[in-house]
Design a protein around this nucleic acid. Structure first.
Lengths: 211, 211, 211, 211
DNA sequence: AATGAATGAGTCTTCATTCAT
DNA sequence: CATGAATGAAGACTCATTCAT
């Protein structure tokens, strides 16, 4: 610890250049993966010099983490923009399930998950950032929705959050796992609907209000 | 002098040295991850020279693939060594569910999944090798068991395989996903039982024979 | 609009900002060494922008040189503020020797010497600046004092300056050299007195008036 | 601490290539200084690849330290190869003093000292290595010689080592210091002899046996 | 078959310096 | 006069891979 150390003062967290860099980083990281991407390429893709990147981000991981943080919201955002006119548990679940699965199987989403998992061991913060913003947050949002339905007497829940996770899991079949391992094709909308349909039926069989 | 001698063919696929190398590789890969492991370390851990590794394996990825192939069976093997005296769908599911989850949350298993996923994009064969031997094969085995129960009138299945995947998914809660992202601790036996219990109940509610 | 305004001449050599910069530079350079210090840190420590530094100083070395020049006097200044009542060669030498050695072994002084030496090859002017103001000037001052004593018949000198250097060297033992190489601790006052004592005795044995 | 860590096994400490590398390093380091020299240049000068250097030496400092260690002996070696026929304190001192000063003012020696001092703060081991092998060892060797003379009744010493350092210091005048700061020329043999002569006289005046 | 030795290409990161404002 | 922002160039170090033996 030296006495003359002061924080290096990162500029504007909202600057346009910052966004440029993240955009460039997205292109390169998604194309080559975290380890496969070089900061040189990122710089080129972002149209800035490598040194400039380090003005905005302290390291490759920090940049990647910012990217993850930045993209998390976008994905989960409209998962729960449910049409308020839907007054029907089944329709509601179906709607959410399809949104969820459609998002999950996007090639870019799969790649993001892959990268985060690959990096998670060495940089736990990245893993946590993604997990908190993704699965965790999504589970909580769904749990709230389910609770509301339960309060209306349409569902019988013991543990809201567990039920939420259960629903997401019920919809997945083997599709997501397969994509993560690079096996199988991105399922069609019809296939997704099939998976979700099965999930909804299982969920209602389990948690649907009896009588 | 045989005519095929000129080909620089790999030596004995079963040689002891080959196994030594894989053993060393396992130690290092599991410790440092695929990208974090250097061939130098592998060579040291295996007690052979780096050049020797390249006699047996064409590349780092090829070595890793061999490791995955070698270890695949071991994991899933005793998942289905069910006590034939169990004559009860619920007990059977509980037994399999606990075995499954216990295996899944082993730190080494998590690491393996992580590594495979990380490598899957650049080396699809590794992903497929793992997937076929793991989830895929496991699903089929469970599907067979479930079918037998259905034939005994204890379950009502439309799609055996889908039901099998459904069961595995139902047991996972958020535990495995969390570990993959480096969030949360390895669940205790009690917690696993809780997850599995919830899964079994959901499964029976969905697929249980209605009277 | 004066006619000389077009020249990009350095601003006020005495400006307060200039002093601020030198003060910041001192803190950083002494803390991290010349090569270890970055202009960023200097700027931060001085509370100005990096670009401003370049308004006042053409380069890192030039800034360092200004620092050396600025600090030179301060060190040697009170080396020769001898109490005029001291009417005794031995006491006089002892007094000066202790002052000299005490100054020499100050950690900051050692650091300064180190930095200057490190820079001297690539930037000879810095070396000369330091040398002239330090050893050289100190030698001349002492030489004058010695001459006065010689004129009083208390010393027998052939070469005043050589005698002056001789005295300083006689006092050093291995202490300063050790510190320069990072070996050994800063000597205590008692140890310094011992070194000086030995030096004074040697000097008087050599140059003392033989009755 | 990972479980698979093993020492990287540096090859032959005596290999010819190792010497090649040190030779290349010497050329570059002496030419550009420690910080000014790049490993690329060293590699080129040594006629090996950069990676090869790192097979033999763990880091730039380690290489530099090896260089210092390697060169230390050579310098001090023949300082004390005194003609056994010299049976005369004064002649002995004169002989050693001239050898000492001649070595000290060699441009390469000055450069080495400069580099070591410059580096000493960040890499104390280098400083210690040099100091132990140089000044320290030299002082001890001279102390032994002086003791022998004292035992013959030719000198009166209280502290052998202190006397040895004293002698070296007495010979230096301002010559070495000047060179270190890049001021003044390498002194001629005649000038050296003058410095040494003054030193010898001072030493004998101080420590000579008073009949 | 096995290896000791060597390497070319590439990694992330840092820094002194300069404009446009 | 002052600065925020940007950069070109360079640096230490690592690694998967390959020969000659």
């Amino acid at each position: 610890m030296s006495m003359t150390d002061t924080a290096p003062a990162r500029p504007d967290a909202e600057s346009a250049k910052r966004r440029d860099i993240i955009d460039g980083a997205r292109r390169v990281f998604f194309d080559k993966g975290f380890d496969g991407a070089s900061m040189d390429e990122v710089a080129r893709a972002a149209g800035v010099s490598k040194a400039t990147i380090y003005v905005y981000f302290g390291s490759k991981e920090e940049l990647f983490e910012a990217l993850v943080q930045n993209d998390r919201a976008r994905s989960a955002e409209h998962l729960f923009e449910v049409d308020p006119s839907i007054d029907n548990v089944e329709a509601l679940l179906r709607r959410i399930g399809v949104s969820f699965m459609t998002m999950m199987v996007q090639p870019d989403h799969i790649k993001l998950i892959r990268m985060v998992i690959a990096v998670a061991e060495k940089f736990p913060r990245v893993g946590r950032t993604f997990f908190d913003a993704g699965p965790c947050h999504g589970g909580q949002r769904l749990a709230e929705l389910l609770r509301r339905q339960a309060d209306l007497g349409r569902l019988e829940l013991d543990d809201d959050l567990a039920a939420a996770y259960m629903f997401f899991n019920m919809c997945q079949s083997n599709a997501v796992k397969g994509l993560l391992f690079g096996v199988g094709e991105q399922p069609s909308a019809a296939q997704i609907e099939e998976h979700v349909d099965r999930g909804v039926r299982a969920f209602l069989a389990t948690y649907g209000a009896r009588s």
